[in-house]
Design a protein around this nucleic acid. Sequence first.
DNA 1: TATACGATCACCT
DNA 2: GGTGATCGTATAC
Length: 196
Amino acid sequence: MILKRKFYECDTLKVARELLGCFLVRKLDKKIIRGIITETEAYVGEDDLACHASKGRTPRTEIMYGKAGRAYVYMIYGMYHCLNIVTENKDFPAAVLIRKLANISELKANSRKFKKIEAVELNGPGKLCKFLKIDRKLNGSDITKKGKLWVASPRLVRLGRKKLIKKNIVASKRIGIDYAEHCKNYLWRFLLKSEK
DNA sequence: TATACGATCACCT
DNA sequence: GGTGATCGTATAC
């Protein structure tokens, strides 16, 4: 089931946690690629010095002030892109950075089922965007509709998987934000431990 | 117009 | 542990 706008319109830390275990799905010309989200980070409001919106509204951060459930994609270090999903209410800037995907699989045009791609590991926002061909053309696109990019909950959620995931979430400090003063110590990075 | 630097990654020692 | 690649963005002039 595709995640609806309402899912993203609430507390960013909650959304960051609940995205763990969900599928990120990318539709390309000739195939669909998906993976399970296993690492996220929350960036919340102008008071969060690590959040791009800490400097207020700019052309770049405007998307974070918009409605929830849309993609915020930006270029970093001149060579990589990062994918975020906008959360919370209009005019409150917040988003969840998608950092890692596991169990990458693809559905080819002439096939009926997803096939796991063993060789690929998308551990890191830059690598993830590169493999899924996510760049700034997708900035602002609606994640709550089956277009080029969306998020779906795993089928087993109703059978108790949700509780299992909750028990396996680890919180830690966010990566690469040493400049963010006291905010760098917030435990706003969430990882899904291996369920083995 | 000029400059400094980053929500990264691969490669080096 | 450290560094370079590479360019959009914010900020200073």
